[in-house]
Amino acid sequence: MAEKEMRVEKHPVLGVMGRGRRVTIFLDGEPITACEGEPVAAALYAAGRRVTRYTRKGHEARGPFCMIGRCTECSMVLEGWGMVRTCMTPVREGMRIWTPGRKGG
């Protein structure tokens, strides 16, 4: 899914949705366009990326579930910091995130 389709540009109630400036973040080394200040999980969703981790036991894909920092399903590795709940972590330019449990990553 293309980013353009996933982002709500004009909302019937909220109008034109305000966003931070466009920046690049890196998911498993691959550049992704995101908006500064939005949660990493939202940026990934906007880029059509729903998998945030693979389980250790069964190598199953998981994605954001609660979006309010409780379920921890969206936890990913933020380079230089460690595991973060991506739904609570704002995008900053150039940040590098890694998908836990991803094979060949």
């Binding site: 389980t55 250790r56 036991k57 069964g58 199953e60 998981r62 579930f65 379920c71 921890t72 399903e73």
Partner: peptide, 8 residues
């Protein structure tokens, strides 16, 4: 199927 998401 998993009951516990975190610990699978």
């Amino acid at each position: 199927y998993p009951v516990c998401r975190c610990e699978d």
